[in-house]
Amino acid sequence: MDLWTVQLPGHVPYDEALDLQRRVRAARQAGTIPDTVLTLEHAPVYTRGRRSDPAELPFGDAWYAERGIDVVDTDRGGKVTYHGPGQLVAYPIVAVDDVMAFVQRLEDVMVDALREEGLDARGRAHEGRDFTGVWVGDRKVGSIGLHISHGVTMHGLSINIDGDLEPFTWIVPCGLGGVAMTSIERENGRAGRMKCVRARVAHGLADALGHRQRIVTPQALERALAAVPAGAGAALSTSG
């Protein structure tokens, strides 16, 4: 089976990416497209997962809006995190039958990509769901948050490449007080690694799923989605 790999251009607003994910998942649930991963960078945004607490955003939505950062509620697992330019985001929209095994695969893919950058990275999902993600020492460099509906995933992973880390200091990232967020650039001084890490993560996901990677343009994806019969997957769109 192929893994369609779609790179979205620019800094994608979160709501636009969320709408696209939902349409891709409906098509995957209907069986009209294969497993697909969207890779992108977001415009600045804080997202609140299902387990978020108001104290994780201590300054309030208006304060963040004044600094150009939207706050969005989402149905993924996990707590508050930040997305912005210089951070790789990958949304694998794939069929899974073992969620914890899939989380482990995501951590392994991220660890392998970061070790290619010279980082001594490790996953910590085995220590409890609050520690899910990828770490360098006691610093967090990558996050994972998923939502599963009728066996198909949405949302996914993020890796800090060379973006501004200050917005993480304005929240309680991932609900973990006192945790420092880091990036490839902060750890090894190397900026401009987005293209390489994105390619490694996409290829690693295909390998981890036992698929062949197939590069698909956003335009080709939209054509495939337009061919999906109206209402396909609608009955499967509730949380599961």
Rank of each mutant, 00 (worst) to 15 (best):
P34H: 02
H147Q: 13
H150F: 10
F168G: 03
D97E: 12
L236Q: 13
S158P: 00
R122K: 15
L114T: 01
I144K: 04
V228L: 04
G31M: 06
E41A: 06
V109H: 00
R129G: 12
T153I: 06
P173Y: 07
R25K: 08
E66R: 11
I33T: 04
R139G: 10
V24H: 04
E187N: 11
T169W: 12
V12L: 09
E107S: 02
D53N: 14
T39A: 10
L114H: 02
M181A: 09
D112N: 06
T153V: 07
C174Y: 05
I215W: 14
V96G: 03
G86D: 03
S237D: 15
V134S: 00
I33C: 04
I148Q: 00
R193D: 01
A26W: 07
D73Y: 11
A199I: 08
L38C: 05
G210T: 07
V172E: 04
V179Q: 05
R51E: 09
R115D: 05
S158M: 04
G78L: 00
T182F: 01
V136D: 01
S237P: 00
R198G: 07
E185S: 13
I144Q: 00
L8W: 06
L221C: 05
A55D: 03
A220S: 14
S183H: 02
R200G: 02
G142Q: 02
I159W: 04
G178Y: 13
G240S: 14
V228F: 09
L57F: 10
G231M: 08
G49A: 07
V152W: 02
D108A: 08
R214A: 12
G192A: 06
G31E: 01
I159V: 11
H11N: 13
Q104I: 13
Y64A: 10
G10I: 07
L40Y: 03
M100D: 13
T36N: 07
W63D: 14
I148V: 15
V71I: 11
G151T: 06
A125F: 15
Y64G: 04
V37M: 06
L18M: 13
G231N: 07
G145M: 02
E41S: 05
A232G: 09
E107T: 04
P34A: 08
A55F: 12
G177F: 13
L157E: 01
V80R: 03
Q87G: 09
D162W: 02
I215G: 11
G10N: 08
G240R: 13
R105V: 06
I184N: 03
W63Y: 12
I93E: 00
T238R: 15
T36R: 10
I33K: 06
A17E: 09
A220V: 08
H11M: 12
A121E: 01
G68L: 11
W63S: 11
D61P: 11
G151W: 05
E116Q: 14
L119Y: 01
P58Y: 10
D2I: 09
G163K: 02
G10A: 08
M194H: 09
H42Q: 02
Q7V: 15
L119F: 01
V179I: 10
L119Q: 00
A208W: 03
M100V: 14
A113G: 08
L225M: 10
L18A: 14
I148L: 12
A208P: 07
G10M: 07
N160T: 04
A121T: 01
A226V: 13
T81D: 00
P229F: 06
A234T: 12
P229Q: 09
G68W: 10
L165E: 02
G77F: 09
G145P: 03
D162P: 03
C174M: 05
A26H: 11
W63C: 11
H147A: 15
V109M: 01
